[in-house]
Structures are given as C-alpha cells and as structure tokens.
Computed example of a mutant assay.
Amino acid sequence: MNIGLFSGSFNPIHIGHLALANYLCEYEGLDEVWFMVSPHNPLKSEEQLMDDEFRLELVKLAIEGYSKFRASDFEFRLPRPSYTVNTLDELRRSYPEYTFHLIIGSDNWALFPRWYESERILAENRILVYPRPGYPVDAASLPENVKLTSSPVFEISSTFIREALNAGKNICYFLHPAVYARLKEHAAYLGG
C-alpha cells in the first residue's frame, strides 16, 4: 500500500491541505494520506503553535468521512525536536508492509539541503513535491525517487488563517466547517 506522509504543524489545517491531499490520493497513486501532526518543527518557533492535541483534534474533524485520510499523532511519541529522518525510520520499522512517500512543498524542497540528514532522507525514501507559489522546480533535474506532482497550486497558509481569525474575519470557506466551528468555540485561539 502506498502511503503519503503529509507532515506539518497544521496550525490549523485548512482547505488547501485537504484539497492537496485529496488530489494526491486521486491522481498520484496514493492509497492513503496520513496527516502527521508535528509537535515541533525545528524550523519554526514553538510558541507559535496551538496545543498539540488541539491541532490533532482539528485534523480529525477535517478528515472525517474520507476513507483515504488518517490523522496521526505518531510524532508525538518521538524525541523533540521532531526530525523527518527519525520519523521515517520509525515508520518503516513500525509498518514494514507499507511504501511511504514523503509529501513536501516546493518551498521546502528549496530548503531541503538544510534539513537534518537530508542526504539520507533522499537516498532512502520516495518524495512527492507539490508546487508552491514562487518556488518553481525543474522536474527534469529531480532524482529518480523524487516526483513533482501536477497538483493545483493552493495559495492559502495557516498564518493567513490565524491572522484572519484574530482580526475577526469570517473565513468560513477557507476551513472545513467543523474546524471553523471548533476554532470559533475556542476563543483562546482567536486572540480572545
């Protein structure tokens, strides 16, 4: 079974994340996409993150009803800060029957050489790169195990979502309805 690993802060999860993962399942040969909620990205400051369990709850609300999506707290049990290479090693040990495909944006692909043990990640794993605005990728220059997807470009960010919510904007169409309702219920995440 081909599993796409969509690791991220999901701070919060939004329709861009969901639409991309849906596309990858339906058009890029993935049987499932696992939303790997990261407790702490080494490239981001920890104080910007909503509570780990709350972000996981929002992911579960967002993916309910689509059988090809899974919410995962796998990285919650790994040492922090969370490094992708460690997550991939542990996943292969825990699920040897699956073929994992790391899903990253072209913005992260541009930074990939800065990732911890990036050369080993590249040597040992399959990687799906999705397009992000302002970060073109030459598909012909990619290693054999790295594929540039043909997915649509989504120009939505979690930072935009948080700023809009904090400003009191009604951005209900940028979030799954259950996620939007939960965020509105939880005023601490709306700056109030």
Rank of each mutant, 00 (worst) to 15 (best):
E47Y: 13
Q48G: 12
L49N: 15
M50A: 15
M50K: 08
D51T: 14
D51Q: 13
E53M: 12
F54R: 11
F54V: 14
L56F: 15
E57W: 11
E57T: 15
L58I: 11
L58W: 08
K60A: 11
K60G: 12
L61Q: 11
L61G: 08
L61Y: 09
A62Q: 01
A62P: 04
A62S: 07
I63S: 02
I63Q: 04
E64T: 10
G65R: 06
G65S: 09
Y66K: 12
Y66W: 13
S67R: 09
F69R: 03
R70N: 09
A71P: 04
S72R: 03
D73L: 03
D73H: 08
F74A: 00
F74I: 01
E75N: 04
E75M: 01
E75K: 03
F76Y: 13
F76E: 04
L78N: 06
L78D: 07
P79M: 03
P79N: 02
R80H: 13
R80Q: 14
P81V: 03
P81A: 08
P81N: 05
S82N: 11
T84I: 10
T84N: 06
T84H: 06
T84L: 04
T84E: 04
V85F: 13
T87V: 09
D89Q: 12
D89E: 15
E90C: 12
E90P: 07
R92S: 11
R92H: 13
R92V: 00
R93M: 11
S94G: 05
S94E: 09
S94I: 04
Y95D: 02
Y95N: 04
P96N: 10
E97K: 11
E97W: 04
E97L: 06
T99P: 06
T99V: 10
F100K: 03
F100Y: 08
H101M: 02
H101K: 07
H101T: 09
H101Y: 14
L102Y: 13
I103W: 03
I103L: 05
I104R: 06
I104C: 04
I104T: 01
S106T: 12
D107I: 05
N108D: 14
N108L: 15
W109P: 01
A110C: 00
A110T: 00
A110L: 00
L111K: 12
